[in-house]
Every structure is written in C-alpha cells, then in structure tokens.
C-alpha cells in the first residue's frame, strides 16, 4: 500500500490481516517469511545458496545437508534451478530446512 489514501481507507476498518508478513523475530534473528523471500529474495546479494535436486530431497525429508561456505550462522535463501523456494538455516557447516513442511512435501512427489 503505497498511497496514504489507501492506508486511510484500511485504517477505518476492523482488519484481520494486512498485506503480506515480511519478517518475524525468532529469538535473536530476524526471519523473513517464505512468501516474502519468493517475491523479494532476488534482491539479496548474500546468504543465497544454489542447491541441486538431491539436496532439495534431503531438506524436504527433514535431513540436514552439509555445505562448504563462508557464511555466518543464520538464515540462508535456497535457490533451486533459479527458483527461490524459501529459507534454510545454516549452522556448523549444515543447513536445515525452514520451508513449510506440508507444502514442500507435496512437491516432493513432483520432483
């Protein structure tokens, strides 16, 4: 909502949801949401990792994948065939999936 006029209209109503949630605070981290990353993740200049089909299968199956990277501990954007799927969490040389489990389990059948 870029326009003040539209914000004014929205503020007169009892709203249950506004736009798209971009970021949540999770302990000491700011965690972007999956759908925010899918739209705006291509603007990211770091913390982005290309994964192949085997790695994606492992992540979806709740297994961690080992990677060699100089990234700091924290959230990382998962790039599969130039599709930004969402986030993983990188710590101690391993990435765990932060993708919505129910949604990605369905696509596992299509891979």
């Amino acid at each position: 909502m870029r326009s003040t006029y539209h914000l004014e209209v929205g503020s007169q109503l009892k709203v249950a949801k506004v736009g798209l949630i971009a970021i949540r605070r999770v302990s000491s981290y700011l965690k972007p949401t999956t759908y925010f990353i899918q739209i705006f993740g291509h603007h990211a200049t770091r913390a982005r990792l290309k994964i192949d089909q085997d790695q994606l299968r492992k992540l979806i199956s709740d297994k961690k994948i080992e990677v060699e990277t100089d990234l700091d501990t924290g959230y990382i954007i998962l790039d599969y065939q130039n599709f930004l799927l969402g986030l993983g969490f990188y710590a101690n040389g391993k990435i765990s999936s932060q993708l919505p489990k129910k949604a990605v389990t369905r696509i596992l059948r299509g891979l």
């Binding site: 007169q12 798209l20 759908y35 899918q38």
Partner: peptide, 27 residues
C-alpha cells in the same frame, strides 16, 4: 484466504470479517 493471497504474492489486500450484507457504509 490468507494462504492463497500469500502464495500468489498479493500485497495490496486487507482482510476483514464483516457480514457482507452489513459491511460498513463509511467508505
């Protein structure tokens, strides 16, 4: 409703919960 809007990347929407036939007339 929220899942559909989020998945499709919809940014220009607010969700309200009024009875349609009694939606406030102010705007």
């Amino acid at each position: 409703l929220g899942n559909t809007l989020n998945r499709l990347g919809i940014l220009n929407t607010v969700v309200t919960s009024y009875q349609a036939q009694e939606f406030p007339l102010g705007q």
